[in-house]
Every structure is written in C-alpha cells, then in structure tokens.
Design a protein around this nucleic acid. Structure first.
Lengths: 160, 160
DNA sequence: CTCAAAATCACCCGAAAGTATGACCCCAAT
DNA sequence: ATTGGGGTCATACTTTCGGGTGATTTTGAG
C-alpha cells in the first residue's frame, strides 16, 4: 500500500527532492555570482587545489577508523531483549523469530528448516524485517537488532 | 642508478606526468569545445572530481606509513587459553579491518569503497577471514568475532 | 639484497540473498 | 461483509556472496 511504498522508498524520495532543491540553488547562485569571464586557468588552479585538499580531508575523515578495534573495554551487553523497542518497530512475533535466528548466523535455508517453513516465506519475512529496521542486508539487521536490544547477546552465554 | 631513481620516485613522477597530461588534455578540450556555453561549469566539475580523487589517493598513499606506528594492539599474550587464541587466529590487520566493517553491516562493495580497495580484494580478505574463523558466512563471522571479542561492541557507541 | 608473508587484484561460477508481485488463508475489528 | 494485518507460499529476476585459482606488488625481516 501507500505507506509501505513510502517507507520502502524513503531515502530515494528524500534524495530526489534534496537533489532537486540543490540544483535550483546552484542555478540561482550561477545567475547571481558567476558573471566573471575568463581567467579560466586561475579558477582551474583554485578549484584543483581546493578539491585536492577536500579529497585529502575526505580521505582522512573516512579512513579514520584505523586499526583501533581490538581489545575493547568490558562493556555490558544486552542480556535480554527490550520489549518496548520491539513494539515500537511493529515487528511481529514471526519476524522476531526469524531475526533471532538470523543473528545466530543461520542461512535463510536453515531458518526455513528450523521453523518448518518455505524458503520463500523466510525471504518474505526478512524483507519485512529489513523494511521495518530500515536496513538492506541481514548483517545490518543483526547489527541494528543489537543496538536496539531486540535480541539477546551471544557473548552472554559463550560456549567455546 | 637511473632505474633506482625512477623506482624510488615512482609516485612523484606519476603525479607530475599525470598532471601534465591532464593540463594538456584540458587545454585541448578547451580548443575543441570552447563553443558551448556551459564550458566553465563542466570544466570546473571535471577538475573538482578529478582532484578530489587525486586528493583521496594522495592521502591514502602518504598516510600509510603513519598507520604502522599507531597500529599495534595493546594485547598482552595472556596464558589463559581463551584470550591467547585471539592473536593465535593469525588475523592480519587488514583482515581485522575488514572484519570490523563487516560487523557494521557493510557489503563487500561498501567495504571496498571505504578502504579504497577493489571488490575482489575484499573478497579475498573475507575468504581468509572465514577460513581462519572457521565459518562459512559473514553473519557467522560477525557472530564469532563477537564471541571472541575481536571487534567492538555496537552497544558501546550507539548513534542517534 | 633476498625471501616470505601480506596485500592487492582478476576471472569464473555456483549458491545464497534480496526485490518485486501476486496470491491465498485466517482472524479480528468495523 | 468488508477491511486490514499477519502468515504463508510462489515465480521471476537481479544482486551479492563465497569458493577456487592464479597473479603481481609491497613490505618487513633476516
């Protein structure tokens, strides 16, 4: 339905409108200020330098999460799911089940077998889950579920 | 000697010649298509994009040696079987980086973009990661990494 | 310098995942 | 009885993953 359509294409729509606005803005600026003529080389050089700088800045920005990672301080993981958060997203019980198994690293096929369902059904469920969590991949879904404490943390009951 | 000089200053030379070629190209383009109206905008855009890329490339090239100093994790090889196994897995720094991003739910393509690497490279890395962690899927790899505390916990730094 | 490990990239190919639609059933609220 | 949500399943299709193999380049240690 309409709601689902909007939710599904949320970012596409935002992007489109945003881009349109930006283009109009640029056009306007062009009329206002870009009236100088010639001196092309100077502008080129300026732009080149500026954007080289921008590139460097960008790179350092993006590359920031260096190697840090390992040996993290003792952080308490979510031991039990938070019912409030679950309700807020409108996840159904089935979807939650699937999400749980997904977080355990099972494939869709395995989830289907576990729940005695068709593979296609699992796909449908996971699609709904992705919509509701606003993600595009199962790994993201798991990550999100962890953040929102929708599922129990595996580290809570280690086995190996 | 000449050979060595060339090899040593490989990137500087590449940069210089590349710049020369680019300028030459631009000049040529200028003569060819000087006719149409929005030449300036197009050139600007081109230059901007190209030099942004150059900046990024430069930054990653130049920043690499610096990384090494920061790198080493503060893990002390404990005698207990559990934490010692972490380093024992033999995960390289790159592999850990990839694993980290993987845990954040990024696709291989996105990881490649983030690290300025080829998609194929990421695939290679992830394959090795799966080998070393003894898993077959990325979701399992993330799960395993969490158990072994190889990566940061998402609940630690929640975003908006 | 030399050698090995790490890192990079490529190509192929099958499997899994995900998208898009549409359909049917059940059940509860209107 | 109609509407709507949840659950189930299907078909068709595109994209992403992951395995296998091989290759080159960087880098670090000896």
């Amino acid at each position: 339905m309409v709601v689902r359509f909007l939710r599904r294409h949320k970012y596409a729509i935002l992007y489109g409108t945003g881009l349109a606005v930006l283009l109009f803005l640029l056009k306007w600026l062009e009329w206002r200020f870009i009236i100088f003529d010639h001196a092309f080389e100077i502008y080129s050089g300026l732009i080149a330098v500026l954007f080289t700088g921008l590139g460097i800045w960008l790179a350092t920005r993006l590359a920031r999460p260096k190697v840090v990672t390992i040996t993290l301080p003792p952080i308490e993981p979510a031991k039990t799911p938070d019912p409030g958060a679950i309700a807020k997203l409108g996840l159904s019980t089935r979807e939650l089940e699937v999400l749980q198994l997904m977080a355990e690293g099972l494939s869709n096929q395995e989830i289907a077998a576990r729940l005695f369902l068709s593979l296609n059904t699992i796909k449908t469920h996971s699609s709904r889950i992705f919509e509701k969590l606003d993600v595009r991949r199962r790994t993201q879904a798991v990550e999100m579920a962890r953040r929102l404490k929708l599922i129990a943390d595996p580290a809570a009951h280690p086995k190996a």
